[in-house]
């Protein structure tokens, strides 16, 4: 089994080391200055529509590109107490969507309780399900039914409709299990028009390059998955890999780092800035600390609001008007068609 950078005591397990490498690459082109050229700095929140909660770094997979450095050897798990604090915030705000991520969020022992409690508040729930968790153990086989009962929107990674691309990035056997899991989700109604059960897939490149055009790729995925495996789904999100954690390690060790960063910077698209997910999202870490996005979370770049940096001191007004913490990795979200947890953000 592949070990996490943290367990290997790898230098890149330290966010400060990652930031040092990122800042050193492009001293002449800082992301902040780039936004300044277009009159977009400082970048401010447009209000909080989504609470993205990372319920733990434990995962049954160890993907080569994972910015969380998640894996079976990661023990950080959100406690029920922190979940209760999240629920309190949700109860007292009109934040409409809760986006649950990890690791594999389903590995948190309080995951199902948490989903049910969020649903009681009338919020929309997204679960970033890695698919293989459904087959990892008998106790997870009923997850499709659980998702259906709670009308959860499922978002799942599938970096290719062939075994080769998927297993290369996500590990041997992942493709086969992912296909089985998708078929199980389809069986309970996910992806079917009119079912209200939304199943979205995520493509991210298995290598040091940007994703191709999202719409053309979605069309191809739909045709191929249907003809090969009789699988249907709603939308495909094409997401750019961020030069953070394990993907940064891959870029450096494969000699692709400089070229990849140059590509991100040269592909800067100002049209993507207004739709950046950090503008309408707050990311909550497993220990309750608040960040502008999941990437800033992994780099331990807390929100700029000094008096509201933990879910227990959530100040909706201050956070809704905060300036976003920006570093060089942010070029990953503004390259080409842009990138967010919902895929491309510009034409």
């Amino acid at each position: 089994m592949i070990k996490s950078l943290k367990v290997l005591h790898h230098p890149l397990a330290e966010p400060l080391n990652q930031l040092e490498i990122l800042e050193a690459h492009s001293k002449d082109t800082s992301f902040r200055e780039k936004l300044g050229l277009y009159g977009m700095f400082p970048l401010r929140s447009s209000g909080i529509d989504i609470l993205q909660i990372n319920v733990g770094k434990m995962c049954n997979q160890t993907c080569k590109h994972c910015h969380v450095d998640a894996g079976p050897d990661r023990k950080e798990i959100m406690s029920r107490q922190t979940m209760e604090q999240c629920l309190e915030v949700l109860k007292n705000s009109d934040i409409g969507t809760v986006d649950l991520t990890g690791g594999a969020p389903e590995l948190n022992p309080d995951f199902r309780w948490f989903v049910e409690e969020i649903k009681k508040l009338g919020k929309h729930v997204i679960v970033r399900c890695n698919l293989t968790i459904i087959l990892a153990n008998k106790r997870f086989h009923d997850l499709p039914g659980f998702f259906k009962e709670n009308k959860v929107e499922v978002v799942s990674s599938l970096p290719g409709f062939t075994r080769d691309r998927t297993d290369r990035q996500r590990g041997d056997g992942v493709f086969e299990d992912s296909i089985k899991a998708l078929q199980m989700l389809n069986q309970v109604g996910y992806g079917a028009e009119g079912s209200g059960l939304v199943l979205n897939l995520v493509y991210n490149p298995a290598g040091a390059f940007l994703p191709p055009a999202q719409l053309a790729l979605e069309k191809e995925y739909k045709a191929e998955l249907l003809s090969r495996y009789n699988i249907i789904f709603n939308s495909l999100y094409a997401i750019t890999n961020m030069p953070v954690s394990r993907y940064l390690d891959y870029l450096l060790s494969s000699g692709n780092y400089e070229r990849y960063m140059d590509k991100l910077i040269s592909a800067f698209n100002p049209a993507a800035v207004s739709n950046l997910m950090c503008r309408n999202t707050i990311s909550v870490g497993w220990d309750g600390y608040l960040y502008d996005c999941d990437f800033n979370q992994m780099l331990e770049l807390q929100v700029s609001t000094e008096k509201s940096r933990h879910i227990s001191e959530f100040d909706l007004q201050a956070l809704s008007n905060r300036s976003i913490v920006l570093k060089q990795h942010c070029f990953g979200c503004t390259a080409g068609a842009g990138s967010s947890c919902g895929g491309s953000i510009a034409d």
């Binding site: 290598g207 940007l210 994703p211």
Partner: peptide
């Protein structure tokens, strides 16, 4: 380009 667009 061909690899990025998904060819094996």
């Amino acid at each position: 380009d061909a690899f990025e667009k998904g060819y094996s």
